[in-house]
């Protein structure tokens, strides 16, 4: 996993609540057995005017000019502003894969769906929960300022606005450490292999019917 340190990135506002993972990456692209290449199909049904197919070259497809990601001023964005319950629905990790492959590193929303929130951390993507009032102001500034950038510093747990205002955010210490270092969860867990084995032996003795 890519370590996360500081991202100073162009910011794009996606002003709708309950953005589900079906919208983030539609089902036809879930047939892939790869982990990469989902970026061109991020928000496929909103981004394009035709229906996308897996394996298709997206460069010539008709784009929906009204969709915020298609506006020239937001090209190359790394920070996504979103609304409540972002990433709800399906557990598909293809959603964070698509966001990451597109180039996003940070998503800021008042709330996230649990599974999506978890999946982000496994893929070098930082989801930040922010108070809705503070976020409203970011939306307002972003929509009215061409080239609006936010600087996100994970170690310091701060977001710095272009006007110099600094916003603090929370993150679980364990997740923060993993993300800062780009650590592989499995490797970390296997340091406790003896403990897992001991737990398993005890459980097998106590509840043998789970081990038929």
């Amino acid at each position: 996993m890519k370590p996360f340190d500081v991202v100073d990135g162009l910011t794009v506002p996606l002003d709708r609540a309950n953005v589900d993972t079906d919208a983030i990456i539609p089902k036809q692209f879930l047939k892939s057995i790869q982990r990469s290449g989902f970026g061109p199909n991020l928000f496929d049904e909103w981004r394009y005017l035709d229906v996308g197919q897996p394996g298709q070259d997206c460069s010539g497809r008709p784009k929906n000019p009204d969709f915020v990601l298609n506006q020239p001023r937001y090209q190359g964005a790394q920070v996504l502003l979103a609304r409540d319950n972002f990433g709800c629905g399906s557990s598909r990790e293809h959603a964070p894969w698509a966001l990451e492959d597109y180039g996003f590193r940070v998503i800021i929303a008042p709330s996230f769906a649990d599974i999506f929130f978890n999946n982000c951390f496994k893929n070098g993507l930082l989801p930040i929960r922010l108070d809705a009032v503070i976020l409203d102001e970011l939306f307002r500034q972003c929509e009215t300022t061409e080239g609006y950038r936010l600087k996100v510093d994970l170690a310091a747990q701060t977001i710095t606005r272009p006007d110099g205002e600094v916003i603090a955010f929370d993150v679980d210490p364990f997740r923060k450490e993993c993300l800062l270092n780009g650590w592989d969860d499995i490797g970390l867990t296997l340091r406790h292999a003896d403990k897992i084995r001991a737990f398993e032996e005890q459980r097998r003795a106590q509840h043998p019917y789970y081990y038929a």
Binding site: R35, S91, R92, E93, P96, I115, N118, N119, K122, N123, D172, F174, D185, I186, T189, L190, H192, A193, I196, E200
Partner: peptide, 21 residues
């Protein structure tokens, strides 16, 4: 019982455990 992402599928296969709060 709950849903997990693919990285967690791999984690459970490799370790029989899940990181959870």
């Amino acid at each position: 019982a709950h849903g997990i992402g693919t990285s967690e599928v791999e984690h459970v296969m490799a370790t029989q455990c899940l990181l959870q709060k």
